[in-house]
Amino acid sequence: MSVLLMLSIILFVLMLVVGGVKGIGAFISLWISFAILVVMMLLISFQFNPFWVLLIGGSCLLTVTVLSAGADERTTTIALIASFLVMIMLLIVILPTEHLAIAQGFAEENSEDLEGLSLAINIDFGTLGIVAALLATLGAIAEASVAITTGVGELLNERPNISNRDLIDVSQVLGKQIIGTAVNTVLFGFLADFLSLAVLFGKLQYTFGEIINAKLFTSSMLSLLYALLGVLLTLPVTIGIFLLYQKRQKHHTSGEKL
């Protein structure tokens, strides 16, 4: 039995014990997301338009992640809309930033591993950098969106006639707590990935200026900033969608009374 299979079985058992049916759904969604990523990589390697592959595949990944939360219809719909909007906003930010940073492709530190291999893969590394940068943020976006939407949804269930001002104030307090946790999760994940890179820089005796200008460091830092920006954008976008939802519900209720 391979290590991967053994860990997968342990994960499945734990998710079944802790989450029950929802745990099984989350486990299945994990492998569905993995399959979507594999299909995206194959399509890009077959010379399909990377941006269309990114938009369609990213939308599928967000949909699977949000649906795996097992929330009610309203929470799922609002979380999906918020996630899609934040994804588009991040793509608008990532496109010019990646072109200006020129941090895509392999760095000098990879030269020994790539020796004897051909880099003539006929795919623009700049485009691949954009695809990788956005994909790295989708998990954080979906997680924060579902958490905020679920919390605000529970608030509306308890106080359906809450005013817009009170809804904004309470949502901001709730969102800040959720975002604080999500930001820490993203930050700790970055620090764990950066640990080996920091050791490499230390062994090579890089100066501070060389570290800042290293392509590996720049790409890692940009991925962190994109994820943090996505998490921060999720709060106002989700609150805005809830306000529109409340306005529509009140208008619909008023129409029924008339």
Score class of each variant (00 low, 15 high):
213 N>E: 15
230 G>P: 03
20 G>Y: 00
130 I>D: 05
183 V>I: 10
128 L>S: 03
184 N>C: 11
28 I>A: 12
104 Q>T: 13
254 S>K: 14
209 G>V: 01
127 T>D: 01
167 L>S: 06
9 I>F: 12
67 L>R: 04
130 I>C: 04
172 Q>C: 10
107 A>E: 08
13 V>D: 09
132 A>N: 06
46 F>N: 13
64 V>H: 07
58 G>V: 03
152 V>N: 03
215 K>H: 06
150 T>D: 13
83 S>Q: 03
216 L>C: 00
172 Q>Y: 15
19 G>Y: 06
132 A>T: 07
158 E>F: 08
55 L>F: 05
68 S>G: 09
63 T>H: 00
8 S>N: 06
22 K>P: 03
146 V>S: 11
197 L>M: 10
52 W>N: 08
26 A>N: 13
105 G>V: 08
13 V>M: 09
34 F>K: 01
80 L>F: 04
58 G>W: 00
78 I>R: 08
91 L>Q: 02
26 A>C: 14
30 L>P: 01
237 V>L: 05
210 E>V: 04
25 G>T: 05
49 N>M: 09
50 P>R: 00
36 I>K: 02
13 V>T: 13
3 V>N: 11
235 L>Y: 03
108 E>N: 12
172 Q>R: 11
110 N>P: 00
181 T>D: 12
130 I>P: 02
116 G>F: 04
97 T>F: 15
151 G>W: 09
106 F>M: 06
118 S>M: 08
129 G>F: 05
256 E>P: 13
8 S>T: 11
90 L>K: 01
75 T>E: 13
96 P>L: 01
41 M>F: 09
153 G>P: 09
46 F>L: 10
161 N>A: 13
252 H>C: 11
120 A>E: 14
